Computed example of a mutant assay.
Amino acid sequence: MNMQKAQQYPCLTAQGFTLIEVLIAMTLLSVMMAMLFGTMKICADSWEKGESKVTDVNEVAVVYNFFQRHLSTALPLWDDFSSDPNSGIRLFSFQGKPDGLQFVSYFPASAGKTGAQLINIQAARDDEDGQILNVALTPFFPLTTGEGWQKEEVVLVKRVAHFELHYFGSDDQTGEPYWQDQWLEKEFQPRLVKIKIELDNGIFWPEMIFDLKTTISAESAGLATEAAVSADSAQP
């Protein structure tokens, strides 16, 4: 009778999964889920690193373009407005130290600044970002009486571990040029400026070397200064 019932209803003889089979299936599922989430984490980390790399490259490009645009076109002018008339020493607008420099350059009209600007770049300390590379912009020529100088400061680079400058040129424009640690109280601009920046996060920044397009004599600098003063005075 039982045989007949089993033949008539074959589904009654089917057996379910054993406990071991269920455990094996759950183990395999867990391994697959772990591999899936591991792969997703690797992809997320790679994406984050890629974005961080793009950000680092963009920061280098911004800094390089800043120096390329303004330092390469620095104006060889006399800084009569910062010089002490009682000392009898006439300072040149370009002054370079191992950890900072100043020069004069024009900004494009789109920047909202008119006339020549004295650009001062110096490493400084910041409570939040550690050592930073600070840029101060000041109108090079005096403004209308009673009008402020409108000095503006911006941070060019954050988290700076090391900032170093070198200047390539001769001492009197006739001798053999060489790399110098500073460029002070000279009557002309250097031929080249080398900038080295290292960040505290270990990201590599290549050395940047810029060719100053104008390295004229002191006499020509005087004529250029007079022309620049006239040009600034003519602006509304």
Rank of each mutant, 00 (worst) to 15 (best):
G88T: 12
L91F: 05
L91Y: 01
L91P: 00
F92V: 03
S93T: 05
F94E: 13
F94A: 13
Q95T: 06
Q95R: 01
G96L: 04
K97Y: 13
L101G: 05
Q102G: 14
Q102M: 08
F103Q: 06
V104Q: 02
Y106W: 05
Y106A: 03
F107A: 14
F107T: 11
A109C: 02
S110R: 01
S110I: 14
G112R: 01
K113S: 06
T114S: 15
T114H: 07
G115C: 07
G115E: 03
G115T: 07
A116P: 11
Q117K: 15
L118Q: 11
I119L: 14
I119W: 06
I121P: 03
Q122V: 13
A123Q: 13
R125V: 07
D126I: 12
D126Q: 14
D126T: 13
D127W: 00
E128W: 02
E128Y: 05
G130Q: 09
I132M: 12
L133H: 12
N134E: 14
V135R: 01
V135M: 12
A136K: 07
L137V: 14
P139W: 12
F140R: 13
P142N: 12
L143Y: 11
L143D: 07
T144H: 08
T145S: 08
G146T: 09
G148M: 03
G148C: 06
Q150P: 01
K151H: 05
E153M: 13
V154K: 13
V154N: 08
V154G: 01
L156C: 03
V157M: 15
V157G: 06
K158I: 05
R159V: 00
R159A: 08
R159L: 04
V160N: 08
H162E: 09
H162Y: 01
F163V: 12
F163M: 11
E164H: 07
E164I: 00
Y167W: 05
F168Y: 15
G169Y: 11
G169T: 07
G169E: 15
D171E: 13
D171C: 01
Q173G: 05
T174F: 02
G175T: 02
G175V: 01
E176R: 06
E176W: 03
Y178R: 14
Y178L: 04
W179E: 02
Q180S: 07
Q180F: 00
D181S: 11
Q182W: 01
W183M: 09
W183N: 08
L184N: 01
E185G: 00
K186L: 08
E187N: 10
Q189T: 10
P190V: 10
V193S: 01
K194R: 15
K196I: 02
E198M: 10
L199F: 11
L199H: 15
L199V: 11
D200G: 04
N201Q: 05
G202L: 07
F204L: 10
F204Q: 12
P206M: 03
I209F: 06
I209W: 06
F210H: 10
F210C: 02
D211V: 05
D211S: 05
K213V: 07
K213Q: 15
K213S: 08
K213T: 09
T214Q: 14
T215M: 10
S217Y: 10
S217G: 14
S220G: 02
A221R: 01
A221N: 03
A221M: 08
G222W: 12
G222D: 11
L223N: 14
L223T: 09
A224L: 13
T225K: 14
T225H: 08
T225M: 06
T225I: 09
E226L: 11
V229W: 08
V229M: 15
